[in-house]
Write a protein that binds this DNA or RNA. Structure first.
Lengths: 246, 246
DNA sequence: TTCGTAAAGTTGGGACTCCAACCGTTCGCC
DNA sequence: GGCGAACGGTTGGAGTCCCAACTTTACGAA
């Protein structure tokens, strides 16, 4: 097999194994386009294509004017699923965040539910809901985007600030004040291409996917709040725990 | 701003909005390289580059000899986190799998723990563990790869078949027969580029990321089993549920 | 009407070239 | 010795051309 593989794959594979086995340690410079064409006896297109593929895989990083370098192994910060939610931030970065100062701000506004949120909250698409958008930052850099939707009447009965930064009255506290006892939190997570606004806000290079977490708070058989959390997939891992049995 | 944007981005953005707003519905053919060069007054490189970017984003799919087509919106199958695990498959595809017949096979073998597994199971890297590799298939097509590691003594005390297909004696049952009561299942999930063997087995086109789930069964303060699950991120979403409150 | 073949169109790999923007380093001037 | 400008190397965008492999369509023969 192989032998009639594309030429650039030969370059990719050789460089990849050298990176993986440590011949090219993190930070080491990758041979330049010109050097690769000579060393592998390929055209510039193949050399360039190989570099682009490795960069898309996140193994190397290109610095214009300087060269390509082996990327440091990215640390995956744990994104801890808190059982006891004491603020509206559904996930908190663990101690491994490296001492980065976490800040966030939010902004609430009334919107129509729309088909997707109506489905999740079992409402009519035309029903009014309150949408709150959060931006979480680590040392000022946006790291996590979250959107929360709840039926508008909840906010009317138990109002909260419309925008601000830092702490905020707990969602669970507000719900329980409204006589709603959350019995279950259901989540689903998948990975996807970031939307332009997302990759803009999170400052993501092309090729980096995001983890998209969809979350719904349930009180018995009824959904009382739902939302979405988006984080860069190469910087975070989502940590949670499930009880076994029954 | 913009105006001095790369030319190919103009093509990408125009096509992307047309796909998103439905002007180009799923299945619709994308203008060919030659047509794009004419229509946008750009070189072949820019047209080709734009198509490659959109393909990497998963919005279009290229069929050699035929053309590029708008990709069907991929359905995300729920991958349900079972609280009651009655077989070694930690996740089962929900009813939405569309009636695909699920089959799987596994193969156990003794290996040295190595640094990563030793860390997870609190063993010495030289300690013997039993590694079991699973391949889950939907209608014969591999859909989910799983690897499970457990201390070798567990298998010695309560042996199990070394390879086979279909059902298998439950992990929890074996553990409880060994006097081990699982009290907690901790998991962490992130997204990454598939390794060559993975993209080969799962038949993934370039640009598709995988969800990597790391799972550990705990009995009190001690890990008793750990493993990894890999699924294509564009076809599955991981579903789980957390109980609220302390 | 059916079948097989030829022609036209399309993708994906590849080579070669040009250029702007950028990074380091070196070298010469003060 | 210190400082700034020039130079060589590098990336990333862009253009043009060529080719093999493949698909679709059209056409002509049986």
């Amino acid at each position: 097999m192989a032998g009639n593989d594309p030429v650039y794959l030969r370059v990719v594979e050789e460089l990849r194994t050298q990176i993986n086995d440590g011949t090219l340690p993190p930070g080491a410079p990758i041979p330049s386009r010109a050097q690769l064409t000579q060393r592998f006896r390929v055209g510039e297109t193949a050399a360039r294509h190989a570099l682009r593929v490795l960069a898309a895989e996140g193994l190397i990083i290109g610095k214009v004017g300087s060269g390509h370098y082996v990327r440091e192994k990215s640390v995956l910060y744990p994104l801890q699923r808190c059982r006891a939610i004491d603020h509206d931030a559904p996930f908190t970065a663990g101690p491994q965040t490296g001492g980065a100062r976490a800040t966030w701000d939010w902004r609430s506004e009334p919107v129509k539910a729309g088909p997707e949120i109506a489905r999740r909250l079992r409402l009519d698409p035309a029903d009014p809901v309150t949408r709150t958008r959060y931006v979480f930052r680590a040392d000022g850099k946006p790291m996590q985007l979250a959107t929360s939707y709840e039926p508008a009447e909840l906010g009317r009965a138990h109002p909260f600030p419309e925008e601000g930064t830092g702490g905020r009255k707990s969602l669970l506290a507000r719900l329980s004040a409204a006589g709603v006892k959350v019995t279950d939190i259901r989540e689903s997570v998948h990975t996807r291409i970031p939307e332009p606004t997302e990759s803009d806000l999170l400052d993501l290079p092309t090729g980096v996917h995001v983890l998209h977490i969809e979350r719904t708070h349930w009180a018995g058989d009824h959904p009382v709040e739902t939302g979405d959390i988006v984080v860069p997939g190469d910087r975070f891992r989502l940590v949670y725990s499930v009880s076994p049995g029954a």
